[in-house]
Design a binder for these strands. Structure first.
Lengths: 346, 346
DNA sequence: TTGTATGCGTTATCAT
DNA sequence: ATGATAACGCATACAA
């Protein structure tokens, strides 16, 4: 039955001996069609192997069944699992997903605007904290959109992320419970909102345990492995060593661990370390890293669900969905054991 | 100038005071239009902010500017960088990419057929070694397609991958050069063609060095971490220990390393290990893993380029592009040092 | 409940 | 070199 050219609605109509309008109705509003004809139509569809031409449909309807997903870097392992959640949810509702990455280049972002302007995408998922293309002038023309991880710079766009404060709190609480009092915080609280919130969780945890803050062990970093290593060196140079390092993300934590290992210390015997994100490497470190897990697939699922909701009715639904992340306890945390002035492990 | 409804070709025509046919020509075949009118048109386009409606265009042309990319698992870190190459190349040629993942479920794969049937995708990139949807009956209806990593099961579809034999050969050669003669091969040579080829590289390397094969140290595995660990245990139980482990992929190598570490051995002092793929974790292992790197971005780039070529002219271009992978030398390989019956490192 | 007819925005054919 | 117009496949307002 495989003809060269795909069957159209007319082919179906001819075989079912009805008009194309009836076929269309039988598909989209079956309740408006008599049982008998509905049957004839579905048989004709089966015979022809008919699939509605999405292009024609989108043209007629004025909107497509594609969602554009724009991320700074689709090669980022943090990204891919979100994509899984996004894709599953979209597909379940008949939507396809179109991807693009800006590589943090505004110009690149602009190119994707074309997909939007040319009606190829009905909605937009934004990964960056900022609008990748231009500024407010743009916002008016934007289709229904939702942000992932962080609120979108210009505001007005709902987003889905994790409760960074609660997540960070779980990490501090663990360290406190293990007996730590001198807990360093390594992270940048200026660039990303998420990082600032993790810092808030740290502060709250210390407060709750009535541990006074020691600004000498709160260091800036930019979320890279290198910055973690650097912060560690500063601490050693100043001779203001904590017993535990709470890091703003896993990359930073990895940097700290690498530095500690290089200096001959053993974790968690001499120092404890926690991260945030649970990137794939976290479980492969020695020792494996105790960290806060981003529920990536779930974030993707919720973000897409929210967008689809926006797409169906124009009700401004919830404007912010915060998932509570779990603490993944591995082997990088233990009771404080290091004695300042003592000897490295090996 | 941001009207509520996007400008159409008619708006442009009106402002430029020409017919819509001329506008279309000015855009697609400018040489057929007088200089003066071409100018008027481009000004009108600038004024209106016109972008051609991709839906209408695709409908008229009978094909879209989307490429469908189907992978077994888009969450796989091995996948994401290929995606980068695919996307860059596609975008540079005005194509967008549509993604789907089958999770190794044929049923899921079938759903993506709809994108093809409904003319939403002009071409197809296949990641699995097999056609995700059904069998030969399907092939006829498939759009121009290219496979990634491995030839597609039913054949007839060009593909882009790496020269696994040459890559594996580089790994054995290194081990041989370091002085190893008892080199185990851990991997499955039945399921994936790539694995079988890596085995061929192993065989060839041994032959070239006139090292007789010892089937007692050639073990099956399925490419998972667990299977690497398992193979190691078998070797220990049988007391047929090699001095080096050449693994069919990084996952297997990681399993072997984990097992070795658990038993208290030190690499590369007691044993050497090599992998294949260069997954992100490889560099974070202790010791970091010496492995063969898949040029992922390049693979993606070439695959897309091949597909676009197929799309433009119907010439059956090269049917197979094999990139030569590099050996990434890290710290898991050294000269053989382990003395059977000797004591573990620590 | 069903059919007829129109238009969505393009591109291509055929005149001029 | 340019313009008028048909056709791509579909959904829907309106008629019956």
């Amino acid at each position: 039955m495989s003809n060269s050219t795909p069957a159209t609605i007319e082919d179906v109509a001819r075989i079912a001996e009805v008009s194309i309008a009836t076929v269309s109705r039988a598909i989209h509003t079956p309740e408006k069609v008599a049982n008998s004809t509905r049957l004839k139509v579905s048989q004709a569809i089966a015979i022809t192997g008919y699939t509605t031409n999405a292009m024609a449909r989108s043209l007629r309807l004025g909107r497509s069944n594609m969602i554009l997903v724009v991320a700074p870097d689709i090669g980022d392992p943090n990204f891919s699992n979100i994509l899984v959640g996004l894709e599953n949810e979209a597909r379940a509702h008949g939507y396809g997903i179109l991807i693009g990455h800006t590589q943090n280049d505004a110009q690149r972002g602009l190119e994707y605007l074309k997909f939007l302007n040319s009606n190829q995408a009905a909605g937009l998922i934004l990964f960056t904290g900022i609008l990748p293309f231009g500024h407010q002038t743009m916002t008016a023309r934007l289709p229904p959109s939702v942000g992932v991880f962080e609120p979108v710079y210009n505001g007005g766009i709902p987003y889905v992320g994790v409760d960074d404060i609660a997540g960070a709190r779980k990490a501090v609480d663990l360290l406190i419970a293990e007996g730590h009092r001198k807990i360093a915080f390594i992270g940048d609280s200026r660039t990303r909102l998420a990082y600032a919130r993790r810092r808030q969780g740290y502060d709250a945890g210390l407060d709750a345990a009535r541990v006074p803050q020691d600004m000498r062990i709160v260091l800036e970093g930019d979320g890279t492995i290198e910055s973690g290593r650097l912060a560690l060196e500063q601490l050693f140079m100043r001779d203001t060593l904590p017993t535990a390092f709470m890091c703003v993300n896993d990359q930073t934590a990895i940097g700290v661990m690498l530095g500690l290992t290089a200096r001959g210390y053993d974790m968690p015997r001499d120092f404890s370390v926690t991260g945030f994100d649970d990137v794939p490497q976290a479980s492969y470190m020695t020792p494996s890293l105790t960290t806060v897990r981003q529920p990536r697939t779930m974030i993707g699922k919720h973000a897409m669900a929210l967008l689809l909701e926006l797409l169906s009715d124009n009700q401004p639904a919830e404007t912010e969905i915060l998932l509570v992340p779990d603490l993944v306890v591995r082997n990088s945390v233990g009771p404080p054991g290091f004695k300042p002035g003592g000897k490295p492990a090996r």
